[in-house]
Amino acid sequence: MTGPSSHAVFDGHNDTLLRLIEKVTNDAVGDFIGGDGLGHIDLPRAIRGGLRGAIFACYSPSPRHGAGFSGSMSGTRYDLPLPPPLDPEAARGYVIRMISLMLRIERASAGAVKICRTAGEIRETMARGALAAVLHIEGAEAIDPELRMLDVLHAAGLRSLGPVWSRPTVFGHGVPFRFPSGPDIGPGLTPAGKALVARCNELRILLDLSHLNAAGFDDVARLSNAPLVATHSNAHAVCPHARNLTDAQLDAIRASGGLVGLNFATAFLRPDGQMDEATGVDVMLRHLDHLIAVAGEDHVGLGSDFDGAEVPQAIGDAAGLPVLVRAMRDHGYGEALLAKICSGNWLRVLERTLGG
């Protein structure tokens, strides 16, 4: 439980729903609520770690690629081939299964988990010690170019969306898993992608810039009237990975009143780009220092990528979040800054974006 020496956490990204639907023994609802001890997040570990709010991603994996590329991020240089565009019908199947799972978790949780559609609902849910869940799609393959499915998903509770997960979609192009590399790779948003930005603004759906390439980032910055948000990205100046943000992108996030969420994935943390759980919390602090110096202390939060990547062993899972909070405090971050990074900045940006 959180107390005077701790802070409630809002986390900008996890892949827990994919982990749950891929389990061989599938009592996913009971496993999440009761705690299966697998992966990074279930309800008991969230409670122990002070995790009171999170953006839950619906990510549709490519055939034969599983949930990610963690085991391939090694060597002094790498450039992992991206899978081809995903079949929209397959993507819709995954998204429907994951949203259905979260709806069933909410119903079975007796109020301990709530799918939130406004910032006011998030604040109220976190304040009473329950888990506020925001539904997100990572990679918009499930959405048709005419955006009809977007209306349906919004009605089901969708409030956050990433136009791409690295592989190309009808909306735009992502960055590869390449090290060392910058994000200036390929063309920007397609006409359908530009229409998607406008419709998300109308529906007050957060647009996630993580995984989007530099040209696409710039297109969103030019077209969107909402704060620019990269839910789970790090500082390119510390780790020169294509997935990380340049100082110019951090400047744009600051200017828009947006936010970047620190990604715990070790390949995006380590200066050598390696996915290795034997990574110290000190490198996370190096990223936070840089993100704060460039984007500003009002524009930095957490975006763990729990259940989607290897994270530092010292943290381990959601129950280990107080390790990072203590490290930030020991590093010299005051309580006011800790409150901003842990949840305050996220709540401010979500209020501007979602309303309520």
Rank of each mutant, 00 (worst) to 15 (best):
G66S: 04
G66A: 00
A67M: 01
G68N: 03
G68P: 01
G68I: 00
F69S: 11
F69N: 04
S70Q: 10
G71I: 03
G71N: 10
G71P: 03
S72N: 10
S72P: 04
S72F: 14
S72L: 15
S72C: 12
M73Y: 09
M73F: 10
M73A: 14
M73R: 15
M73L: 15
M73I: 08
S74W: 00
G75H: 03
G75I: 09
G75V: 04
T76H: 13
T76R: 13
T76D: 13
T76M: 10
R77N: 07
R77V: 12
Y78P: 09
Y78N: 11
Y78R: 13
Y78E: 14
Y78V: 11
D79W: 11
D79Q: 12
D79V: 12
D79M: 07
L80K: 14
L80C: 08
L80E: 02
P81M: 12
P81S: 14
P81Q: 14
L82I: 06
L82H: 04
L82C: 08
L82N: 09
P83D: 11
P83M: 07
P83T: 09
P84N: 02
P84I: 01
P84G: 11
P85Q: 07
P85M: 09
P85S: 12
L86I: 12
L86F: 08
D87P: 04
P88C: 11
E89M: 15
E89W: 10
A90D: 03
A90S: 09
A90T: 13
A90P: 00
A90M: 10
A91T: 12
A91K: 06
A91C: 13
R92D: 09
R92N: 08
R92S: 12
G93Q: 03
G93F: 02
G93D: 08
G93A: 04
Y94N: 05
Y94W: 13
Y94I: 04
V95Y: 00
V95G: 02
V95P: 00
V95S: 06
V95C: 03
V95L: 08
I96W: 15
I96T: 15
I96D: 14
R97M: 06
R97E: 06
R97A: 13
R97Y: 01
M98F: 01
M98L: 01
M98A: 01
M98V: 01
M98N: 02
I99A: 09
I99W: 01
I99R: 01
I99D: 05
I99Q: 11
S100W: 01
L101R: 04
M102Q: 06
M102R: 01
L103G: 04
L103I: 06
R104P: 02
R104I: 02
R104H: 10
I105C: 07
I105N: 06
I105T: 02
I105S: 06
I105K: 09
I105A: 05
E106N: 09
R107V: 06
A108I: 02
A108E: 15
A108D: 13
S109E: 03
S109G: 02
S109I: 01
S109C: 03
S109V: 02
A110Q: 08
A110D: 14
A110P: 00
A110S: 12
A110R: 07
G111H: 03
G111F: 07
G111K: 04
A112H: 10
A112V: 00
V113Q: 02
V113S: 05
V113L: 02
V113M: 05
K114M: 00
K114P: 03
